[in-house]
Computed example of a mutant assay.
Amino acid sequence: MPAAASMTVLVVDDQQTMRSLVRTGLQELGFRDIKEAPDGEAGLRVMLTSKVHLVISDYNMPKLDGLGLLRAVRGHEPIRTTPYIMLTGRADRELVQRAVQFGVNNYLVKPFTVGTLKEKIEAVFGPIT
């Protein structure tokens, strides 16, 4: 697995504060190339125009929610295998089951710690440092 510093991460969340929290956590873990999008539509545009190694996306967003973005990613051949972590304030079973059904790699419940963020990423990739 490539080191965190060599990976591009896309953080998709409609709340600037949450994007900043995720960015800060990723930077603490050694990630340097971090892109942001305020909703699923903008996130999909980023993925179609640049190489992304990991998506961390909120579930509840306007325009295109996290499940919709996940479905779009899994349905588009060039990006369908991009690892995807769902970020949500809802840890209910139905949401998790639907996300798994659509091919999510992992999920992270808000609020989270940098340690939990690292665990979720390493569960997908293996050690990142």
Score class of each variant (00 low, 15 high):
Lys110Met: 09
Glu77Asn: 11
Val73Gly: 00
Val114Phe: 06
Gly89Ile: 12
Phe112Ala: 07
Ile79Val: 14
Ala37Ser: 02
Thr81Leu: 14
Ala37Phe: 00
Tyr84Trp: 12
Leu64Tyr: 06
Val96Glu: 06
Met61Leu: 11
Arg80Pro: 01
Phe112Cys: 05
Phe112Thr: 01
Leu95Ile: 10
Phe102Val: 12
Gly40Ala: 06
Lys110Thr: 08
Tyr84Ala: 04
Ile121Asn: 02
Leu48His: 05
Tyr84Gly: 03
Arg90Gly: 12
Leu95Thr: 08
Val109Ile: 14
Asp65Gln: 11
Leu48Ile: 01
Lys110Gly: 03
Gly103Leu: 07
Asp65Met: 11
Val96Pro: 06
Leu95Met: 14
Tyr107Leu: 03
Asp65Leu: 13
Met86Phe: 08
Tyr59Val: 07
Val104Lys: 03
Gly68Asn: 06
Tyr59Glu: 08
Leu48Phe: 03
Leu64His: 05
Arg45His: 11
Ala42Asn: 02
Ser57Arg: 00
Tyr59Gly: 01
Ser57Glu: 04
Gly40Asn: 03
Val46Tyr: 05
Asp39Tyr: 01
Val46Lys: 09
Glu119Ala: 12
His76Ile: 05
Glu41Asp: 10
Gln101Asp: 14
Val114Asp: 04
Asn105Glu: 08
Pro38Ala: 02
Tyr84Met: 09
Thr81Trp: 15
Leu117Thr: 01
Ala99Cys: 08
His53Gln: 15
Gly43Pro: 00
Pro62Arg: 13
Tyr107His: 10
Thr116Leu: 15
Leu44Val: 02
Leu95Lys: 11
Asp58Phe: 07
Asp58Ser: 06
Val104Ile: 12
Gly103Ala: 07
Gly115Lys: 10
Val55Leu: 10
Val100Arg: 15
Thr49Tyr: 08
Tyr59Arg: 06
Ala37Thr: 00
Leu48Ser: 03
Ala91Asp: 14
Arg80Gly: 03
Pro62Asn: 12
Gln97Val: 13
Glu122Leu: 05
Lys63Met: 12
Gly115Leu: 10
Arg80Phe: 10
Arg93Gly: 13
Arg45Ser: 09
Tyr59Asp: 08
Thr82Ser: 13
Arg93Pro: 13
Val55His: 05
Arg98Cys: 08
Val55Glu: 06
Val55Phe: 07
Tyr107Val: 01
Thr81Lys: 15
Leu108Ile: 06
Met86Gln: 07
Gln101Ala: 14
Met86Trp: 05
Ile121Thr: 03
Val109Asp: 01
Gly103Phe: 05
Gly75Asn: 09
Thr116Glu: 15
Lys51Val: 12
Thr82Met: 14
Thr88Gly: 12
Gly103Ser: 07
Lys63Glu: 11
Thr88Asn: 13
Arg80Leu: 09
Glu41Asn: 06
Gly66Ser: 04
Glu77His: 11
Glu77Asp: 13
Leu95Asp: 10
Ala99Thr: 02
Glu119Met: 13
Lys120Trp: 10
Lys120Ala: 11
Ala91Leu: 08
Leu87Thr: 02
Gln101Phe: 13
Thr49Cys: 09
Val55Trp: 07
Val109Cys: 04
Arg90Gln: 15
Val46Pro: 01
Val46Gln: 10
Val114Asn: 03
Ser57Val: 00
Met61Lys: 04
Val114Ser: 02
Ala99Trp: 02
Gly40Thr: 02
Ser57Lys: 00
